[in-house]
Each structure stands twice: as structure tokens, then as C-alpha cells.
Write a protein that binds this DNA or RNA. Structure first.
Lengths: 116, 116
DNA sequence: AAAACACTTAAGTTTTAACTTGACAATCAG
DNA sequence: CTGATTGTCAAGTTAAAACTTAAGTGTTTT
């Protein structure tokens, strides 16, 4: 229990921002410092750190400070939480869509009944 | 091409709100009207409709008006977009985490080398 | 020691999101 | 026709998010 599980609200909210998703993709290449991470973005370092905090609270990123450098890397927890939520809802979802298709295939059962 | 593909930004943003996720779960039970959908939530109908618009623009919900009733149902496009984004990034992500484990298993290669 | 570096913190601004209220429009039922 | 139902539209309010700037804190480098 050293690790607090990420709240799904924060995860999706974190992923809902293009800058933060870009940061995650950048970190997928490997761990790096805050300033290197933020280099491609046209914003202040402080803003980069703020995005980073959102990502960290969502459990999508883990950071660790050594000396004056804070190293950042991707973390699995948040990603897993998002995948789990989606996966958990897919069965009902698919079932619902199947039901819709049925209606489209048989708009009038009497008229189109295959085996009378 | 009759269906516009949902923008990933909107999808995650839509999912980042507890009320909207609850609405999706409610709609998973089957299509229903706006007022029935909004019944469990302590907010005005107008607010419900606003959430519904967010969900619809994200491609998570589809609505259709018949007479005075607007019927709402879940839609696959948005969900698929979210799943695709996560799935696309998982390989790099896993690779990155594996790399981390390696470092933890072998903090000092010389001291712990298994086969000298 | 002095300067450069890599953040950190606090505070303020601007934009966006999540509501509310109230007036309106379009069914449908009696 | 009337009246209730079901939603729509347009403002306006409040709160949260996404920044900015500027000053400050440790950490290396020289």
C-alpha cells in the first residue's frame, strides 16, 4: 500500500490535454529531466512542472529528484486504471450496439422474417 | 465518411468527469430520453443536456429526436478512439518499465553478476 | 567564492468548464 | 384549444485549469 491508486477522474482529465499527452509520448522514449522534457513546448518551465504534477497525481508519471535534477519517467498505474475502466465497460457497450444492429436488420419483423 | 472521427482530446476530457461517466454507465443499460437519463443527477435539465453535448461531440453518445423526445444511446467511436490511443502507447510504455526493472534487479552489475 | 543551472514557490491573469435561471418552442393528451 | 410535457436557447455566475512573471532555494561548475 505504499502506492496510492490513481483516481480515474484525474487520469482521464490528465489525458484530456494535448500537451500532457505529448509529454507522455516524449517520456516513452525514456526518462529525462524536467527541462529536457519541456524543451519542445512553448511555455515557461513553471507551466511544464504544473503539467507534470497533474500527470504525477494521475499516476501516469513518476519523478525523483537527484541533486538539482528531477528525473521523470512513465508509470503504469494510471494507464492501467484507464484501460481497466474502458475494458470493464466494453461488454455492456458492445451488447448495446449489437442490440442496435438487430433493430436495423429487422426494422419490421413480420415483413422480413427469414423462416416465417 | 458519414461519421466524423472523434478528437482524442474531447474523448478523454469527456471521460474525465464523474457525472458524464455515470451517464455513460446509465446509457449502457439501454437507450433512454434526456430527462430519464438525467433523473438521478441533482442538476438542472439544461446542465444534463450540456453534458450530453460534450459526450456527443466526443463520439461517446449518439442522440436522435423523435417528436418531443430525444433518445440517447452509447456510441462506439469515442470509446474506440480512447482504447486505440492507450493501446498504441502501451508497447513503448511496457518497454520503458522493463528497462526500469532491469536497473532495480542489477543496481551494481559487478557485485551481483550471476555467472561471473 | 561567484556564477550558472535546474528547478521551486507564490501570486496574479486569462481562459475554459460547469453549472444556474428564465424565457421560449414544439409536441402530445384531453 | 389548453395545458402539461420535453426539450432548447441565451445569459450570467462561480469555480477550476492553464498559463505568466518574478523572486527564491539548493547544486554543481569554475
Amino acid at each position: 500500500m505504499t502506492q496510492k491508486e490513481p483516481k480515474i477522474d484525474r487520469v482521464f482529465q490528465a489525458l484530456g490535454d494535448a500537451t500532457r499527452r505529448a509529454m507522455l509520448e516524449r517520456l516513452s522514449m525514456g526518462p529525462m529531466s524536467v527541462s529536457l522534457l519541456g524543451e519542445p513546448f512553448k511555455m515557461s518551465l513553471a507551466a511544464v512542472v504544473q503539467h507534470l504534477q497533474v500527470l504525477e497525481e494521475a499516476g501516469l508519471v513518476k519523478t525523483e529528484k537527484t541533486g538539482r535534477v528531477r528525473s521523470c519517467r512513465v508509470e503504469a498505474a494510471g494507464l492501467r486504471a484507464a484501460e481497466d475502466w474502458l475494458r470493464a465497460r466494453r461488454p455492456e457497450w458492445d451488447r448495446e450496439l449489437d442490440r442496435l444492429e438487430e433493430l436495423l436488420d429487422e426494422p419490421d419483423e413480420k415483413a422480413s422474417h427469414p423462416v416465417g
